[in-house]
Computed example of a mutant assay.
Amino acid sequence: MITVSLFETPLLSKIICHPRIINETLTTRGAIVAESQIKHIAVIGAGTMGVGIAQAFLLAGRTVTIIDVSAEALERCKTQLQQNVQSFIHHKLTTHSIEKVMENVTFLQCDITDIPLDNIDMYVESLPEIEELKRSLFSQLCNTDEHVILATNTSSMTVSRICNELPTQHRMIGLHYFNPAHIIPAVEVHKGPLTSKQTIDTTLSLMKAIGKQPVLVQKEVPGFIINRLTGAMEREIDFLLDEGVVSPEDLDIAVKASYGFRLATLGPMEAEDMIGLDTAARASANIFPTLSNAHLPSKQLLEKVANNELGIKSGIGWYDYRNSQSTEVLANNNEKLLKQLSLFLAQQPQGK
């Protein structure tokens, strides 16, 4: 057994998958099963994202195995899952009991080379953003059955970057969840150039079946859709803060009470139609030339990182959390988002 943790950064020993000819005709291989036949999902990585990903499958009645090399991580995952389900019960977002949910989940401690390869219909990888780590895992998963979907929760890498040269590219797909994954409805579904239509269609259907709102990223691009949008906004935020145009506190108030308030109900294209495309065009022509084109993070942000002011997890970031427990701060944030989720779901058309 390899003793390197799934979460350590040194390169893992190269794992050689079963040799096959990469350019053989993909369409002649075994068919991906229908969404309703995906009954057992393995979530690899028991961190914050892993537990959120697992919860949606469990609340939809699927069986889940959560896999991690760390017994401590699995124990934290189990506790967090129970707390998350309880919060859903409190907000009437599920009719399942905690006991019922926990009957359908298994917590498995094992290393990357010992991950079970049988009796699982889909693997969802939720490991740190380390390319070699992800590639090593998917090399190991080359030996799974042909009907099995292999998904990565990468937030920045393309599918082809992770699975280039692997013989399983036709059943590889990206599922980009948003933190907290058990609350945020959207999932970006992104594909590689060789991902089969069956894999895409089944994955989209599966996400809808478990209550998520999938969005298909139609072309490979780093950052996909939302991270590119938030990255553009982050760059302008950095500029406004560095130039002393606004304080962090007032910036949050401004966004939550205007743009963010509207976005919770109206998407940017709906809002632009409401404002008027002629007005939007004139405003863009006036503002675009003045926007930041920086290629690096802001000076203030880099200074905070250098000083270990990393946000809630370190006790201080743009705000000071040192007089509060991090678990309390996160629970308070989740409580706000759960109320928003209830309102969001109430506004969705029937059958969506």
Rank of each mutant, 00 (worst) to 15 (best):
T94S: 14
T144E: 03
T95S: 13
V105R: 08
K134F: 01
V148C: 09
D121E: 06
T154S: 14
Y177G: 02
V101G: 13
I89Y: 13
D145S: 08
L166D: 01
F88Q: 02
Y123F: 15
E165D: 03
D111V: 00
L175D: 00
I130E: 07
R171M: 00
T113S: 11
L108F: 13
E129L: 05
M172Q: 09
G174L: 09
M157G: 03
C110I: 11
V124M: 15
H182G: 08
N153W: 00
F138A: 07
P180G: 07
S87F: 08
D118E: 13
E146W: 02
E125S: 11
I130T: 04
L108D: 11
H90C: 03
F178D: 07
R161W: 01
I173L: 15
Y123E: 12
I89A: 03
H91F: 12
I115Q: 04
R135C: 00
Q86S: 15
L175K: 04
Y123S: 11
V148I: 11
L93E: 07
N104S: 03
H96P: 06
C142A: 10
I173F: 13
L133A: 11
R135Y: 03
S156A: 14
A181I: 09
P128K: 11
G174T: 10
Y177Q: 04
L150E: 06
E99P: 08
T94Y: 08
H170P: 00
H96V: 03
N164K: 08
E125R: 09
V105L: 07
T168H: 07
A181L: 10
M172V: 10
E132V: 04
S156N: 10
I112E: 07
N153S: 12
R171C: 01
N179Q: 05
K92Y: 08
E129Q: 05
Q86N: 14
I98M: 03
T113F: 02
I98S: 13
K134A: 02
T94N: 13
L175W: 10
S160D: 15
F178E: 06
V124H: 15
E125C: 06
L137Y: 09
E132G: 10
L141R: 06
K100F: 09
L127M: 14
A181K: 11
A151P: 07
N164Q: 05
I120D: 01
C163P: 00
L117W: 12
S155H: 08
E103G: 09
V101W: 00
C163D: 02
S160F: 00
C142H: 14
P128G: 10
R161D: 03
N179M: 05
P116N: 13
N179A: 06
Q140H: 15
E129R: 06
D121Q: 03
I173N: 15
Q169I: 10
P116C: 08
Q86P: 04
N119G: 00
Y177K: 09
S126L: 04
M172C: 15
L175E: 00
D121V: 05
E129D: 04
S160V: 01
R135P: 00
D145P: 02
E125T: 09
E99Y: 12
E131N: 03
D111L: 05
C163H: 05
A181R: 11
I149W: 01
E129G: 05
I89T: 15
H176V: 03
E131L: 12
K134L: 03
T144P: 04
D114I: 01
I89F: 14
D111N: 13
S97D: 14
M122G: 09
Y177V: 04
T144V: 13
V124K: 04
V159Y: 02
E165V: 02
S97E: 13
L137A: 06
